[in-house]
Design a protein around this nucleic acid. Structure first.
Lengths: 193, 193
DNA sequence: CTCGGATACTCAAGGATATGACTAATCATG
DNA sequence: CATGATTAGTCATATCCTTGAGTATCCGAG
């Protein structure tokens, strides 16, 4: 019962179609709330029924028609109440960490490979978030923007996403290095790629 | 279909009862996989049916009886296969970040309060993980342990948990400071606690 | 001597999520 | 001129996860 609030928060900055929302989720809200497009469409339908968002049909010629949604006053009130209520503990689930937990008892080679893939993916995300942050703050520098900017919420959450990805990348690379070193000692004559 | 692997990984270091597993999850595996005790009991039952773990009844006198579980060879093989398969993208869900995303449009006071609570909670976890890490590596220093320790998986994942909590704490405190400053400027004569 | 907390679990109900398949038009690329 | 990518969604199913309650014993604090 909380995807609704993530959707409302993501929809605060204007009108989005379900499709656009799904995209925006990937780069922005996706840093702290994961959801598939199907969920978003379903949630938008529910929110509309409850009057927390309102949609209008947009007829297009060279594209399929779409419905653009925005948050209503009732939706804003719902968000307000949500913000004041106590937060649930955050949820994390990561396959790769499970594998690392077990790494002494299973083959290290595939884990090593996945650590490097993850590091690369994190690197890509870091660049993307860097650009997004720059775009959000415009010409101002960060301190200036955070003091006087009108809409800093998305910027703040992107900062968290950025720090997370940097941390994750560093950890992946360090662990990969540790595992490689140990591999070399166990089989000192073997070249590990 | 992946809690099973988290349970298998958590169970690698010896025998646990469901109750003990639930406790261990909170501090160790809980850093990257969140699960309630009910889920763990249910999962252990399923895993036993499939022969991936084996349990034995332990009769106690001044405590309720319990069942101690350990991973079987089949369980280890399952983990092995899991480690070699591609990882699913990690899942994060955090209420507080949703609130920060919306912070320009809702009351900041409760969000500020929750940021400080979170920072304190993270601080407590940081201390706990610091102790746990020290306990895991024994007398050796970290580099030494990572090079030659026999079981480093749990240590590596705790390192990730520690970095995450430190990062999270720092972010919470910084964001809280930013929001306080902005609050002061909007109402310069008001004392914000 | 009672009350809360720890040990050790079990069960049911309902909401949330993941998975995969499906429709349908347009546009760019080779 | 076919192929795949992009836009814009919908539907069904199965599993997962959360919530909340319930059972029973023992220990220590007040």
């Amino acid at each position: 019962m909380a995807l609704r609030h993530a959707v409302l928060a993501a929809l605060l900055d204007g009108e989005y179609s379900g499709y656009q929302l799904a995209k925006a989720f990937d780069i922005g809200v996706g840093n702290f709330w994961h959801a598939l497009p199907q969920q978003l469409y379903a949630e938008l339908t529910k929110l509309e029924k409850e009057g927390l968002v309102a949609g209008r049909q947009v007829v297009q010629e060279s594209r399929p028609n779409k419905r653009m949604f925005h948050v209503t006053d009732a939706g804003l009130a719902e968000l307000e109440a949500f913000a004041a209520a106590p937060s649930k503990p955050s949820v994390i689930r990561d396959d790769l960490l499970v594998k690392v937990q077990a790494v002494d008892r299973v083959g290290t080679a595939p884990v090593l490979e996945q650590l490097q893939e993850r590091a690369a993916a994190a690197e890509a995300k870091i660049e993307l978030l860097g650009k997004l942050l720059h775009q959000l703050r415009g010409d101002a520098d960060e301190e200036e923007f955070l003091r006087h900017g009108e809409r800093i919420g998305p910027y703040l959450t992107c900062l968290r996403g950025l720090a997370f990805e940097q941390d994750h990348r560093d950890w992946c690379l360090r662990i990969a290095a540790v595992l490689r070193d140990r591999g070399l000692e166990e089989h000192p004559c073997q070249i590990v790629r």
